[in-house]
């Protein structure tokens, strides 16, 4: 009996107590990589100027590329209006990982590109398949997510970014 009480006590104390960061980031802390192979902790996905568009993609995924092209086509306007930032996390594994840098630069995308070759961040975010996109507010809280892409989805993305940007003011 004592044992059960102690275990319960332990669980309650564990659940009820610590952590009171008001600036808490909703993103899990996972070590992935930058394009030149350096380690990047996903807790560092931040944007002080506005919302974040976080997209899981791969060079072999057609709808993912269509989605990123749509965001890229509107990038300058949306950036000006909402101050948003794009993080595109490639889940290409070691087979196609080296395609990411020339692919992205060839298209002239001005996104923050990260590499998740063994799906560690993808798993931590419970992403099943790509494309899967998230929008985070400036406190790093996930406010929207969407799986798959159809032409026109960028309008919904834009609406949410705009809303978040106006809340900021």
């Amino acid at each position: 009996m004592n044992r059960i009480i102690i275990v319960l006590f332990l669980i309650i104390s564990f659940v009820y107590s610590y952590g009171q960061d008001t600036e808490k980031n909703n993103l899990p802390s996972v070590n992935i990589k930058t394009l030149n192979g350096e380690t990047f902790n996903t807790a560092g996905i931040k944007n002080a100027d506005g919302p974040i568009f976080l997209s899981f993609w791969a060079t072999w995924c057609k709808p993912c590329i269509k989605e990123l092209i749509a965001v890229d086509e509107n990038y300058v306007d949306w950036q000006e209006e909402t101050g948003f930032k794009v993080y595109a996390v490639s889940i290409d594994d070691s087979k196609s990982m080296n395609r990411v840098a020339p692919f992205v630069n060839g298209r002239g995308w001005e996104f923050e590109i990260l590499l998740d070759p063994n799906g560690d961040f993808k798993r931590a975010m419970n992403v099943i398949n790509v494309p899967h996109s998230f929008i985070l507010d400036k406190n790093g809280k996930i406010v929207w997510q969407h799986n798959s892409y159809s032409p026109g989805d960028e309008d919904e993305i834009y609406e949410i970014l705009k809303k978040l940007a106006s809340e900021k003011k």
Partner: peptide
Amino acid sequence: LFPNISFSQNENKKDYGEIHGNFE
């Protein structure tokens, strides 16, 4: 391991942790 655990509940904001997942 978790030095910032306190057994009191006098903090304003309680953090119960987060549960996430997926189904397929």
